[in-house]
Amino acid sequence: MAWDGDDGEVVDPSVGELERRIRALDGEHLTIVTLQSETGYFAVGGSAANGLVVFADLGDGDFWSALSPVTSSTTMVTVVAGGQPGDYEERLMTTVEVAIAAATHFLASQALSPEVEWTKN
């Protein structure tokens, strides 16, 4: 498992390192944390303070997004992920706690966390 983001790559990151890097996302200079396994890809982008988007591709052709635990609004908001601004529905904006739970589960199992609600894109 490798981690990559705006400030470098880490091979076999610890849960603590992953959590620290997600919490450091500021939506301006630090905008993405990605995990890559042999078969899948996982990304957290945006700002830990203002909202994060969480995506996963498990290598089976399906692309998943974590859903917000607080809103189902389809109003569009702009999020900078990977240094690029993009428009996302508010319902795809998660909290830092949800992003960390999803990321740590993926790190451990290369699967979607059952504690997070997901939608297939």
Rank of each mutant, 00 (worst) to 15 (best):
M1R: 08
G5L: 05
D6A: 12
D6L: 08
V10Y: 07
V10W: 05
V15A: 14
E17R: 15
L18W: 06
L18R: 07
E19I: 08
R21G: 03
A24S: 14
A24F: 03
A24N: 10
G27T: 13
H29S: 13
H29I: 01
L30R: 14
L30W: 06
T31Q: 13
T31H: 13
I32R: 10
V33S: 05
L35E: 06
G40Y: 12
G40A: 13
F42A: 05
G45R: 06
G45T: 04
S47Q: 03
A49I: 04
N50G: 01
L52D: 01
V53N: 01
V54K: 03
F55H: 10
D57I: 03
L58P: 00
G59Y: 13
G59I: 12
G61K: 12
W64Q: 05
S65D: 09
A66M: 05
A66V: 04
A66Y: 03
S68D: 09
P69W: 12
V70Q: 12
T71Q: 10
S72P: 00
S73F: 05
M76Q: 15
V77S: 00
V79Y: 05
V80G: 06
V80M: 11
A81N: 07
A81W: 02
Q84F: 14
P85A: 15
E89C: 00
L92T: 14
M93E: 01
T95Y: 10
V96M: 01
V96C: 03
E97T: 13
A102S: 08
A103H: 04
H105M: 03
H105Q: 05
F106K: 03
F106V: 08
A111K: 13
A111S: 13
L112N: 02
P114H: 13
E115P: 01
E115Y: 04
K120Q: 14
N121M: 08
